[in-house]
């Protein structure tokens, strides 16, 4: 198998004559059932964490509904043509959720799910942090605190192009301890970038413990409001609540939007759920089996 993908993000063989088939309809009112797809993404993540390197399991599991709602309901994208100029853009600022993003992109059709098995292998483009060689990945991230500034650039470009394309930036809550996030937050509000939507994966944990103990972020919603943002607070595992918040039309006051998504780190894996140690794991054969069993049990009604 070649070490690169046939279709590379940012390059397309030909421009589509009309709006592409899969991305033609704006998905803002889409209520596609996501039960199966979120379950499959979780299984992919767990299986990738059982590979040679292990992976960022906790922060990938907490993201699953956020990414699924964006790619399967909200964003206007074409997985067959990742560089489609009219697409909405997602930047995974918490780049360590890379395997969650790869699994979502594969399920959305950007590349075959079989290729997820290459994650962490020698010579594979599937590195732990998002690699732009992988179709659908817009920007390389992984150093925390860069995504919101990048998002400002995308949002400004959209304004200059006079389109209503949107830019979504997904951040970790620990990531908000980086000062660069707040510098960018101030710029986005000052320039009324209402096409910019930030999502905070509010799982309450970082590597060394609870965000509340390491470097508290509360009152988080008030902080964003004070910076001039419109704030939604939702259950980050409730796909309909996420859909409503993520697809809300910009208001008259043209503020950027932040969705604070309350999540559970390691969601779906009872053995590590809501524990800091879920951050990174290399699952052995038995742990892998138990994790898959737990996911499948949760899936049965």
């Amino acid at each position: 198998m070649s070490s690169t993908f046939a279709v590379r993000g940012g390059q397309a063989p030909t421009a589509p004559a009309a709006a592409p088939a899969t991305g033609a309809e704006h998905r803002q009112t889409d209520r596609t059932d996501l039960t199966e797809v979120t379950a499959r993404i979780r299984e992919h993540v767990v299986t990738m964490c059982a590979g040679r390197e292990g992976g960022h399991v906790g922060g990938s599991m907490s993201l699953v509904e956020i990414l699924s709602v964006l790619y399967f309901r909200v964003m206007l994208v074409d997985p067959g043509f990742p560089a489609w100029p009219d697409r909405d853009v997602l930047l995974l600022s918490k780049g360590h959720g890379g395997i969650g993003l790869y699994a979502t992109l594969a399920e959305a059709g950007y590349f075959p799910v079989e290729r997820l098995a290459e994650y962490g292998e020698h010579g594979s483009p599937l590195m732990a942090h998002p690699n732009t060689e992988v179709p659908g990945v817009e920007m390389p991230t992984g150093s925390l605190g860069h995504g919101l500034a990048l998002g400002i650039g995308f949002a400004l470009a959209n304004r200059l192009d006079d389109t209503d394309r949107r830019t979504f930036v997904v951040m970790g809550d620990g990531e908000l301890q980086e000062g660069s996030v707040w510098e960018a937050a101030s710029v986005a509000a000052a320039h009324r970038l209402d096409g910019l939507v930030a999502v905070v994966d509010r799982n309450g944990l970082q590597i060394t413990g609870a965000t509340a103990e390491v470097n508290d972020l509360e009152p988080l919603a008030d902080r964003w409001r004070a910076f001039g943002w419109r704030v939604f607070e939702v259950d980050g595992h409730d796909v309909d609540a996420l859909t409503d918040a993520l697809s809300a039309a910009p208001g008259q006051d043209r503020r950027p939007t932040v969705v604070i998504a309350r999540t559970v780190k390691g969601k779906g894996l009872p053995m590590v759920e809501d524990q800091a140690r879920s951050h990174y794991a290399k699952l052995g054969g038995r742990q892998h089996r138990l994790a898959l069993e737990a996911l499948r049990k949760a899936r049965r009604p």
Binding site: E175, Q177, G179, I207, T208, V214, N215, H279
Partner: peptide, 29 residues
């Protein structure tokens, strides 16, 4: 001074524990 590295997980600094300060994810600071 730690920045959420995880390097000191499980380390006991004993009487010096007060001189371990985890400032969070903030390298410039």
């Amino acid at each position: 001074l730690d920045t959420d590295t995880g390097l000191f997980g499980g380390v006991d600094f004993g009487p010096a524990a007060g001189r371990y300060v985890n400032i969070g994810i903030a390298e410039h600071t």
